[in-house]
Simulated scan of single mutants.
Amino acid sequence: MLKKLLKYDWKSVSLLLLILHGILLVYTLIGRLGIAFGLSGAGDTMVSSVTTMYGIAAGLYIFVYVLFIFAIVVATYVYLAIRFQKNLFSDEGYLTHTLPVSPTKLIWSKMLVAWAWIAIDLVCVIVSVFLLVLFKETSGSIGDLFHEFIAIFTGGYGTQNQIFMIILLLSMIAQLFGFYTTLALFSMCLGSLFKTHKILGAIVTFFGINTIFSLISTILMFVVPAWSPVTYETNGLTGSQQNGLFLCYLALYLVCSVIFFLGSRYILSKKLNLE
């Protein structure tokens, strides 16, 4: 049954997201053609006014491009949340909850689809950036950066840096795929308990819990002397202190993800409210 749920959830969200990411890639190709035109040296034969116009157009394009990437990332997350909220707690929810499937499978179906699209989103953004900047003239610099990045993970810059980058990467993955995904589902479940303004309740819950988490993280940094900003400003953080700090963040993200998952399952199992 989980396979059927995944298939349904995937189809219900993918069309619009495919169109949005397709637009991003088309916009990227337009920019690549413009940059290739500029690098070809055609601008050397242009009059000054035309060259100036080209520079203004390039600057405007980059500005819109950055905004577009940010909008795509946010839109993907928001659209998934809206679509899943409707599937679970709107009129559509009456049909969803009559299916012979457990709340656990409902949650896993939503999470797996969300993870897949978050991953696709990241890949599209990375491919888009590379398409825009990777030319013969820039390949050397980009290659050097890539080799340095790989060297850090393979221990080329020391074991401390390697461990730090691994912990940092795991922390970012836990935050994006674990913390924020389960928080969104948990917020929707809590929002459904409101008698009115359920969507507003979910939004307030999401930002409220996120704010509380940020406050706890900040307090933790000041409470633990080794992680205090005062220590950082005076002596700097050692490699082990940095690793300890981000290990703590990683643990917090994982623990919160489990709590949000269990909380969502409890509400869907015991406190479901579709009114």
Rank of each mutant, 00 (worst) to 15 (best):
K3W: 11
K3M: 11
S12M: 11
S14C: 13
S14A: 13
L15V: 06
L17Q: 10
L24M: 13
Y27L: 12
T28E: 08
R32A: 03
I35H: 06
I35E: 08
G38L: 09
S40P: 04
S40R: 04
G43H: 09
D44L: 08
T45N: 11
T45K: 06
S49K: 10
T52S: 07
G55V: 03
G59K: 05
I62C: 05
L67E: 03
F70L: 15
A71Q: 08
A71E: 07
I72C: 11
V74I: 14
A75L: 13
T76E: 03
Y79W: 12
Y79P: 04
L80P: 06
F84N: 14
Q85K: 15
K86L: 13
L95S: 12
L99V: 02
P100I: 02
P100T: 02
V101Y: 01
I107K: 00
W115R: 10
W117L: 15
W117Q: 06
I118L: 07
A119E: 03
A119I: 12
L122M: 11
I126D: 00
V127E: 08
S128K: 07
V129K: 05
L131Y: 02
F135A: 09
F135V: 08
E137N: 05
S139I: 09
S141W: 14
G143M: 08
D144G: 06
F149I: 13
A151Q: 11
A151I: 03
Y157C: 01
G158I: 06
Q162G: 02
Q162V: 01
F164Y: 15
I166E: 00
I166D: 00
I167T: 14
L168W: 14
S171C: 08
M172C: 11
M172P: 01
I173P: 05
G178A: 08
L183E: 09
L185G: 11
F186C: 13
S187N: 04
G191I: 13
F194A: 14
H197Q: 15
K198M: 09
L200C: 00
G201H: 06
V204T: 14
F206Y: 15
I212V: 09
S214C: 04
I219C: 02
L220R: 02
M221K: 08
A226V: 11
A226H: 06
W227D: 07
P229E: 02
Y232E: 12
Y232V: 04
T234W: 01
G239K: 05
S240D: 14
G244Y: 07
L252W: 02
L252H: 03
V255R: 03
V258S: 06
I259Q: 01
L262H: 06
G263M: 07
Y266E: 03
Y266V: 09
S269K: 14
L272R: 11
E275P: 00
